[in-house]
Simulated scan of single mutants.
Amino acid sequence: MAENTAAGTEPRRVEPRSVLVTGANRGIGRAIAERFVAAGDRVATIYRSGDLPAGVLGVVGDITDTAAVDAAFTEVEAAHGPVEVLVANAGITRDQLLMRMTDEDFETVVDVNLTGTFRCVRRASKQMIRMRRGRIVLISSVVGLYGGQGQVNYAASKSALVGMARSITRELGGRGITANVVAPGFIDTAMTAALPEERQQAYRAAIPAGRFAQPDEVAGVVHFLASADAAYVNGAVIPVDGGLGMGH
């Protein structure tokens, strides 16, 4: 381990870390997992199905089930050691206009995106507290701060992650643990590619950068928040949206 370069700075750990990225089988989660693998970390994921990037330990599990989350973490810990970096990325959408949205539409999205994240954070924090170090990064969305038509459930679940991260910061910040939020905008993934071309053009026109982000651009911000350079960044919301939300 390298020595500190200044009083109060966090030691720069040179050995591989145990990193868990939920939902690393596609899109942003996949890019995040690949970034940590490339950096030499031991990377695992909890996911439902699909193929995974090379070098990622996959544990099939359901984050809406507390027992399944606990079992998945136990398996990851046995293979890679206690989780030092948790990236809570897994999420779903069930878009529908407010008056047509069912209770099930709302509750299912909240259970995965918000309560599922809580289950993973709670489980990871047990070992982080013992180690007196840890990085928690919650993947929100510009929609959580900006709003989105037909996305009352999704926006509610993603905006709530901000309050979660800031409450974790106040609880655990003194134990060497950080909890931050990354709020991506429109990302060039299979989901956006499936949108009608006219809608894609309308979205691009609303983005000051004039384009969608690449998944790796989000992964780079997540990787920074998990690094020693971000040891004093805690409870922050980092937008990666090309200027769409302007911090809102």
Rank of each mutant, 00 (worst) to 15 (best):
A2C: 04
T5N: 14
A6E: 14
R12N: 07
R17L: 14
V19R: 08
T22K: 08
G23E: 13
N25G: 11
G27L: 01
G29M: 10
R30H: 02
A33N: 04
R35Q: 10
V37A: 06
A38Y: 10
A38K: 10
G40F: 12
R42Y: 00
V43I: 04
Y47I: 05
A54F: 13
L57N: 07
V59T: 06
A67S: 05
A68G: 09
D70N: 05
A71G: 00
A72F: 12
E75M: 08
A78H: 13
H80R: 01
H80S: 11
P82A: 11
P82N: 02
E84T: 06
E84G: 14
V85D: 08
V87P: 12
N89S: 08
T93I: 13
D95W: 06
D95H: 06
Q96R: 15
R100A: 11
V109L: 12
R119G: 07
C120F: 07
R122H: 12
R122N: 12
I129C: 12
R132G: 00
G134D: 07
R135T: 04
L138D: 03
V142I: 10
V143T: 11
G150N: 07
V152T: 14
Y154P: 04
S157T: 00
S157G: 07
M164W: 02
S167G: 09
I168Y: 15
I168Q: 00
L172E: 10
G173V: 10
T178R: 15
A183F: 00
P184V: 05
P184W: 00
I187C: 05
I187H: 08
I187Q: 04
D188P: 00
D188R: 02
T192W: 01
L195W: 09
P196R: 01
E197W: 05
Q200L: 05
Q200N: 07
Y203M: 15
Y203C: 00
I207M: 11
P208G: 08
A209K: 09
G210Q: 06
G210A: 04
F212L: 09
V218I: 14
A228F: 13
D229F: 02
A230Y: 13
A236K: 03
V240R: 09
G242M: 04
M246I: 00
